[in-house]
């Protein structure tokens, strides 16, 4: 609308190009795609909670290819060991020394499928890597590539033989989203269209690693006004009032909310954050962090809706 307040056109064009390509592969999920990209630009990790077969892998794969990133998928099972994720040192008889064989985690986009099937020990190996963006194996600390983006999935309906992530672990995901079934038109397009796998093969990167790094830095420069900080703090304070939620937003959650809102503003081609951005990312950012004291089983969407309605925008 107004060039004076928009980011450099290149950023807007890049983002639109990425979104267009993703939406051409992942049908009818514009909202989820936009959130996933927002999450990645905010340097956060994504938890997708949904049934098998709704396109989680396709989303992760498409994202990796479009951004030109190396992609690895780890299928979590109950017998998965930490070494299966991180890698291990093996004796190289020829060189007469131990040689480190990096695990699948040494990749830029990781799809951690059905994360709640693994034992807590294996889960925490991944989660620690996510948090610190480095891996320590046998006393040697090895940095993980940058950017580093984890998309974990879990099936909320299967309970037997699973180890649901505790709240402290959930907090490490910037967002938790649901994909859901495609709508009628998307389903039809899906049934008529080409094979997903072929489509993915044809995807070419729309952005360089440098450009991605620039975009991630642009997020930090999106303007956050005093009025918006007032609004953020009012939201945070509301979650911390005694008797409402089992735990309020932690400072990390508050920071995550602000980053996500900044990234959202950037994805929407704006140089400043508005309350609408906060409200748009709040279900994904806050939904897995709040549990009402009086109705612990209330759907997250309703919990967030009540929170939004309780705090006036400045």
């Amino acid at each position: 609308m107004n060039t004076a307040s928009s980011p450099p056109p290149s950023a807007a064009a890049l983002i639109d190009g990425i979104l267009d390509q993703l939406n051409a592969v992942v049908f009818g999920k514009e909202g989820a795609v936009r959130l996933a990209l927002t999450c990645l630009l905010a340097r956060g990790h994504l938890l997708v909670e949904d049934l098998p077969g709704v396109g989680k892998t396709t989303l992760a794969h498409a994202l990796a290819r479009t951004l030109g990133l190396r992609f690895q998928r780890i299928q979590f099972t109950s017998d998965l060991l930490p070494a299966d994720i991180l890698g291990l040192s093996m004796y190289n008889a020829g060189a007469q020394c131990f040689e480190f064989h990096p695990g699948p985690i040494f990749s830029q986009v990781i799809l951690a499928d059905e994360i709640n099937r693994a034992t807590p020990k294996s889960q925490s190996a991944l989660l620690e890597a996510m948090e610190e963006q480095q891996v320590t194996v046998e006393g040697t600390t090895r940095p993980l590539p940058d950017p580093f983006f984890v998309i974990a999935t879990q099936n909320p309906q299967e309970q037997i033989g699973t180890f649901p992530l505790p709240e402290s672990q959930l907090d490490r995901f910037l967002m938790r989203i649901h994909l859901g079934y495609p709508d009628h038109a998307a389903e039809r397009a899906l049934l008529q269209g080409r094979d997903r796998r072929e489509l993915l093969e044809d995807l070419s990167p729309r952005i360089t690693e440098t450009q991605l790094g620039d975009l991630q830095r642009d997020v930090l420069r999106v303007h956050v006004s005093e009025a918006l900080l007032d609004y953020l703090q009012a939201l945070i304070a509301h979650t911390r009032a005694p008797g409402r939620y089992q735990t309020g937003f932690s400072p990390r959650a508050g920071l995550a909310l602000m980053r996500a809102a900044q990234a959202r503003a950037l994805v929407d081609h704006r140089d400043h954050v508005r309350p609408g951005d906060v409200q748009a990312v709040l279900p994904a950012v806050g939904g897995h962090r709040l549990r009402p004291v009086e109705a612990p089983t209330l759907p997250a969407a309703e919990v967030i809706q009540a929170l939004v309605e309780a705090v006036p925008v400045p």
């Binding site: 307040s5 303007h223 006004s225 009025a227 918006l228 140089d271 400043h272 954050v273 508005r274 309350p275 400045p314």
Partner: peptide
């Protein structure tokens, strides 16, 4: 209003 309130 939104630009005045939230914009740089």
């Amino acid at each position: 209003y939104t630009r005045l309130r939230y914009g740089p």
